[in-house]
Design a protein around this nucleic acid. Sequence first.
DNA 1: ACCTGAACACCGTTCAAGT
DNA 2: ACCTGAACACCGTTCAAGT
Lengths: 174, 174
Amino acid sequence: MPTPSRTSLDSIVAAGRDILSTDGLAGLTMQAVAQRVGVKPPSLYKRVQDRDALVGLVANALAAEVEAILNTADSLPTLARTMRDWAVANPEAFSLAFSGRASQEAMEAASAPILRLCAATVGERDALAAARLITAWCAGFLTMELAGAFRLGGDLDESFDFALERLTAALSVP
Amino acid sequence: MPTPSRTSLDSIVAAGRDILSTDGLAGLTMQAVAQRVGVKPPSLYKRVQDRDALVGLVANALAAEVEAILNTADSLPTLARTMRDWAVANPEAFSLAFSGRASQEAMEAASAPILRLCAATVGERDALAAARLITAWCAGFLTMELAGAFRLGGDLDESFDFALERLTAALSVP
DNA sequence: ACCTGAACACCGTTCAAGT
DNA sequence: ACCTGAACACCGTTCAAGT
């Protein structure tokens, strides 16, 4: 006799997102997710292949969040600062979003705003390479900042702005 | 009655480094390390606080490797290409070395070559900010390249060289 | 002093049995 | 159809007992 569903894939991914932000990736266990959606761990396997797949779906959801935020930016410096504010406010989410676990489609969508602004700055021909430069720098800087890897003193805000100035100058001049 | 040691901290860290490169961070278990040094897992706790501490020691060893390699470079472009070659040859080692798990001292030592070349390029005043720009970009680019995050087509070598040209230009002009 | 077997808590995952 | 209890393999870690 059929039984009505007691949860859904969306609730599971949403629960995973919440647990990630409070307990980190290590706390994102099948048991924790199951408990939060009100089900026993084995039931999750009806909706999700395994933990890796679930983490990937959460990463996709985070990439969509990033896309939405970046779409509000109208210049590369604004975009970088928007990204930084979000990363500082959501460190665990940031690190999963940029861990390479999101799907190609999700990453493409999140890259679109950067690509658009880069095309406007350097032209279509160099847009992709410029977007990779900006993305790599920004992801690298924020990852290291959040990991506490910048420990040689100095002002981090200053270092961020220094880089932003030099980068925009480097991309503005052909 | 005293028993002669059957292993040492150095062997344990070396075993960890080897296992990392073949099986990745997930394969770097206390059991795998113990087996490789010829001891049972509980014995490791005589030399190492816990798995996290062991991973940190391996990260320190990797930072020292990075330092040695980067010290052979005599310009920023050469340094970046040296780093990239090493990262491609040692992907797991690279990602642990830049994960923020190494100690402050190890990170400072690994940063020294970059800082030195940046000081020669932009002067002492901006050396730290410039080093952070180069380091963040390079770490970000290689992390994303190794994670397969650059999937929008185009030539990755070209994107790397494009960034390197623009960055050196941006740092050369005051 | 160092090593080990036994034990515990915790995790991911499978599957037969329930409704 | 979906859910669960029981079970298994695997991991980190502790500790009393061995030498």
